[in-house]
Design a protein around this nucleic acid. Structure first.
Length: 474
RNA sequence: GUGGCUGUAGUUCAGUUGGUUAGAACAUCAGAUUGUGGUUCUGAGGGUCGUGGGUUCGAGCCCCAUCAGCCACCCCA
């Protein structure tokens, strides 16, 4: 038996139907919000990708081997002792890599096409990305991202737009989700407020694990990472506040709305003004104030000051969306990046974007039975093949049906009727048409309704109309 | 990169303290009416028990190694 690489998948017709349902839904909504499509190549130059995703991210980039025989060509011989390290070697044998996400290639695209773009630029992009991760539940080495970004605008209204897109997408898919909202500036303010801003990264990474490992483990980790005891104690007080709040919320005393408010109040009290942290709180207040103008029925929005997100380039708002009724990682994530185009030579352009993980959304919809059936199959009639003598009549009937806009096919072999009917049945084709010797003599066709088993014999001219009318009854 | 679990037919799984020729269900194909599917009945094909080694008179079962898959950590969609 052949096989396919770890973490990749084949998609069968039934799965494609469900996947297209997701792609069609997000695409429809993206367009409705004014986003324009672009595509970029599957592979990028390695320098474009490296250094954007953090150390861990860099390791997960799939590299493409250069063509040619490196030993034969003698290229490797020019590297002497000291220089012979894996970094040097890999730059010699590989200069391209598969894209890791759609945001970094987009930033590269914006810089390259800056003169053709009218800012602010709203783009959507639906393409696969690759990560050399170890596969597990909801995690693949090849998967599709559905990205939208607004670049060239500082306005927080863009964040609000993105939140509405999230609500629209998940309400269209009938899926209840929680949108977690935070701001990198608040995280920085928090690090500053406890007097450990030099440990910003370590603090956010530890904080991010709160829900998974609990209060104690986070405090332990902070200590292990070399953060001073008095700073750890201040953080512990904050964590206690969060935990107490969780308990009240479980008891139904705090709604997620009040939740967000009380967290903002707490942080306002411990932050010095003016500071980056306070700026973050102002931004968060703005979002919370203005999202009230919109209905959020399927997405519950919550300010979660422990949300970190690892991608290095985020500088402001960050988002993460998780399903309420299923265990799965994040279904959607994103944030604001103030200087991603700067690394490609075009500074001062801020962008904000999110990415929907189509594969994870598919898995969740599948487990919750929310994928509509048979959205792709559109053949409504199959003609039975009776053999050479009846072929002329069958082919002209086939053409006539298709001309009338009816999806139709002729069974290709003169097989037993049982087999031909079983094929139609398996393919959920609603009508089977028979024109054998007797029917042809009278220019008639027998039409069998496969759902109720009824069969009528009508003239050739009536067939299209009959099928169209009968189809409307279902 | 680290750890855990599982590998028997296309799929889901049985398989006794190690004992003759490894089973079932579903799926597939064929037949039960030479012009009628879904239900029923009959039959057939399909396995080097992941792979390699070891223990034993004898291994699907025990031991070692290896590979693959799944799950968790890390990180993320």
């Amino acid at each position: 038996m052949p096989s396919i690489p770890k973490g990749t998948r084949d998609f069968q017709p039934a799965e494609m139907s469900g996947r297209n349902y997701i792609f069609d839904t997000v695409k429809r909504i993206f367009k409705n919000f004014g986003f324009l499509p672009i595509e970029t190549p599957s592979m990028e130059n390695i320098e474009t990708l490296t250094g954007k995703y953090g150390d861990e991210g860099d390791k997960l980039i799939f590299r493409i081997l250069n063509s040619g025989d490196f030993v034969e060509s003698g290229k490797l011989k020019n590297i002497s002792g000291e220089e012979f390290n894996s970094k040097k070697l890999s730059s010699l044998i590989s200069e391209k890599a598969l894209r890791y996400d759609l945001t970094v290639p987009f930033a590269r695209y914006v810089v390259m096409h800056r003169n053709d773009i009218v800012f602010p630029f709203k783009r959507y992009q639906i393409q696969p990305v690759w990560r050399a991760d170890r596969p597990q539940k909801g995690r693949f080495r090849e998967f599709y991202q559905c990205d939208i970004d607004v670049i060239g605008s500082d306005s927080l209204l863009n964040e609000i737009e993105l939140l509405q897109v999230i609500e629209k997408v998940f309400s269209s898919l009938n899926l209840k989700v929680t949108i977690k909202l935070n701001n990198r500036k608040i995280l920085f303010g928090l690090a500053e407020a406890i007097g450990a801003s030099e440990h910003f990264t370590q603090i956010t990474m530890a904080l991010d694990k709160l829900e998974k490992v609990g209060e104690k483990a986070v405090i332990e980790e902070l200590g292990q990472r070399g953060i001073k005891p008095d700073a750890v104690e201040k953080m512990a007080a904050f964590l206690r506040f969060i935990s107490n709040e969780k308990i009240s919320s479980d008891l139904g005393i705090l709604s997620s709305d009040n939740h967000s408010k009380s967290r903002l109040e707490y942080l306002t009290n411990i932050f010095n003004s003016p500071s980056i942290g306070v700026k973050g709180l102002e931004e968060m207040n703005f979002l919370i104030k203005h999202i009230k103008s919109f209905k959020f029925d399927f997405a519950e929005i919550e300010f979660d000051p422990t949300l970190a997100r690892g991608l290095d380039y985020y500088t402001g708002s960050i988002f993460e969306v998780i399903a309420k009724d299923a265990e799965m990682g994040s279904l959607c994530g994103g944030g604001r990046y103030d200087n991603l185009t700067g690394v490609f030579g075009l500074p001062g352009i801020s962008g904000v974007g999110i990415s929907f993980g189509a594969d994870r959304i598919y898995e969740v919809l599948k487990t919750l039975n929310l994928i509509p059936e048979n959205t792709d199959r559109c053949v409504s009639a199959m003609l039975v093949n009776f053999g050479e003598a009846e072929l002329e009549f069958a082919l002209s009937l086939l053409a006539q049906l298709r001309e009338a806009g009816i999806g139709a096919e002729l069974y290709p072999d003169n097989a037993k009727l049982k087999k031909q009917f079983a094929y139609a049945d398996a393919g959920k084709i609603p009508f089977v048409l028979m024109a054998g010797r007797d029917e042809i003599l009278e220019k008639k066709v027998s039409v069998k309704n496969m759902q109720n088993g009824e069969q009528v014999t009508i003239t050739e001219d009536e067939v299209s109309e009959y099928i169209i009318n009968a189809s409307h009854q279902f």
